[in-house]
Design a protein around this nucleic acid. Sequence first.
DNA 1: AGGCTAGCTTCCGTATTTGAAGGGAGTCAA
DNA 2: TTGACTCCCTTCAAATACGGAAGCTAGCCT
Lengths: 158, 158
Amino acid sequence: MSRNDLASSACSVARSIEKVGDTWSLMLLREFFLGTRRFEALHKNTSISPHVLSGRLKAMCEEGVIEKRQYSEHPPRDEYVLTQKGRDLWPVVLALKAWGDRWLDGPQAVTLRHRSCGQVMQPVITCQACGQAVTPRDVVTEIGEEFAGERCTCRSEG
Amino acid sequence: MSRNDLASSACSVARSIEKVGDTWSLMLLREFFLGTRRFEALHKNTSISPHVLSGRLKAMCEEGVIEKRQYSEHPPRDEYVLTQKGRDLWPVVLALKAWGDRWLDGPQAVTLRHRSCGQVMQPVITCQACGQAVTPRDVVTEIGEEFAGERCTCRSEG
DNA sequence: AGGCTAGCTTCCGTATTTGAAGGGAGTCAA
DNA sequence: TTGACTCCCTTCAAATACGGAAGCTAGCCT
């Protein structure tokens, strides 16, 4: 199976991965959330080669994650900005950052500060319904009956 | 630049992406969070070719995201389970799922139910310090002075 | 006229991935 | 004890993607 076939997966995680789950798309998302908008700046900050960059930008436009916006008529110049669909990917990038800060050594070039409380922002996932913090153990995974048969579930217990 | 150079990036997002930010690693993480542990089951559920699968599992073991555990002596059989470092990637997978559920059409094979409140789990990101829900607009991005010079920040305002 | 910038595209050699096939170590049933 | 079967991979050839450098176009600027 190739990457593209993930689009037709029954799993929304797989479908998301097909759209934005590759190294360069994720790097570009980081960059967009940092405020970068232009081709040359994206190229310099991410070191993505122009060829790959132009392909990714095109794909992300088609997917509606970003959109092209002309910021100058003479000369005609475009910049790329996140759409709402794109901005909704913030939790993904944030989660990667939090994990890296926690588990990977290295400098921490970027800090997020919560405007309203003034503290350095440490993200916590909570349940919208009850507001409690949530970890994997707090949730039950329910697989729709119509999909259960498709999955190979062999595993040992314990 | 190649993917591997991301490891030495000043940005923890980039470092995370280098470790787990590729299609097949993300697919494997999804699968591990669904409880799959064995080579054959991982292969069948993700359609990752055995060659790539064995490479990714090896890499993820070396990174400490998963570990090999023998579940049978005769015949010798191993399974792969998430370490704490790996379980901490749950927010990443969860964020991808939430985004896919919101923005991509298709069946929703998996539902997460919050054990304690009984509701279908919709993740919200909150600030650990104050407990409030957070969106990108609520945080200020602070780039360490020693890194600011490295970045190309050209952009138009507005 | 000549040089500069932004935003790409083209080219080519290398690296990675896919897909199919194979292999080894062990169990099981006849 | 022979043959079939399972699990966990490994090997190989062909297709694909990527990296790095160069080039190209339109429109400044002097």
